Amino acid sequence: MSYAIIGFGNLGKALAKAFARKGIEVSVATTRDPESFASDAAAIGPTVIPAKLADAVKADIVFLAVRFESHPDVAKVLPSWQGKTIVDVTNAYGVPPDKLGGQPSSRFIAQAFAGARLVKGFNHLIAATLGQDPAVQGGARAVFLASDDDAAVAEIATLAERLGFSPIKLGGLSEGGLLVQARGNSWGHLVFKDLVKFDR
């Protein structure tokens, strides 16, 4: 299984830290030349590999950590995303719901990535928190996952556990997914909630 993070701003770097902490190789890419952010990648760890966008999108699981309005630029890199799982880490705060056809932002994004399975996740925490070790006082920091594809959400839940997080499945994109998505100028109820799960 191969992994990539598209977008290497604060959220992308936070995700890269999670992979590096566990020694899991992950490609990172932006629309820029990889040499322009190679030193930032190296500072996080040797398993964080700078890549060209065209190469990074070959990964099996792709974390979309770009600005919401930039997702079409990533989507058009491949004619088909069949067989891939996209983890939507974007936040469409400030985007009028009518521009999304009244849909949740993740379902809108899913339409751009033809053939892919899409999971909303890892977006509810600010980057500074997401980048911290998810082991907290004997528990594990929660990440919320929503998808209309049960197999895809199970796959990302397994990965989240490998990264040290405690995945909590919220159901479909139009139900539980709304709890972790922005709608116009308001945030879903679970956005910014930093929760820790303890096994009992």
Rank of each mutant, 00 (worst) to 15 (best):
G164R: 05
F19V: 02
A182S: 02
A116G: 01
L100I: 08
D55T: 15
A154D: 11
A140W: 13
P96K: 02
A41M: 06
T30L: 04
V191C: 08
F165L: 00
L145Y: 10
L145T: 00
V180N: 14
D133I: 06
F122S: 09
V28R: 08
W187N: 00
K84R: 02
G177I: 07
A182D: 12
P34Q: 12
A160E: 07
D55L: 12
A56T: 11
L130E: 04
F108H: 14
V77L: 11
S186A: 14
L53I: 06
N123T: 02
A110R: 11
H71F: 13
K84M: 14
V153G: 03
A135Q: 15
L145W: 11
I44C: 05
V57I: 00
L118F: 00
V180I: 14
L53E: 06
V153S: 04
T85K: 07
R200F: 05
G12Y: 09
G139P: 09
L178H: 10
F8S: 04
V26E: 07
K193V: 08
D133C: 01
L15Q: 12
R141A: 13
P97G: 09
F19H: 00
G188A: 04
A128S: 15
L118R: 14
G102L: 05
D55W: 01
P134M: 03
L179I: 11
A157L: 03
F113V: 10
A29C: 04
A112T: 11
P50C: 07
D133L: 09
Q132W: 12
E155K: 01
A146S: 12
D60Q: 05
K58F: 08
P104A: 15
K17I: 04
D60Y: 13
E25L: 13
L125G: 07
L163K: 14
G94C: 11
G7Y: 06
D194K: 07
A14Y: 12
A110S: 15
S27M: 14
Q103R: 15
D33V: 05
A151V: 10
L190H: 00
F144H: 10
A146G: 05
L145G: 08
S106L: 04
G12Q: 04
N10M: 15
V180M: 06
A152I: 10
K84C: 12
T158Y: 02
K99I: 00
D55I: 12
A75F: 00
A142E: 01
A160C: 09
V26L: 13
G45T: 08
L159E: 05
G172C: 01
I86H: 08
F37S: 13
A43E: 03
I168N: 12
D148Q: 03
R21N: 13
A114D: 10
Q137N: 15
S166A: 15
V196Y: 09
L179C: 07
D88K: 03
L179A: 10
V26R: 10
F192G: 02
K52D: 14
D194F: 00
L130A: 11
L125M: 10
V66Y: 05
Q181I: 05
A41T: 10
V143K: 01
A29N: 05
L53H: 05
L53K: 12
S36P: 11
F192L: 15
F113T: 03
P97D: 09
G131F: 03
A20W: 01
V180E: 00
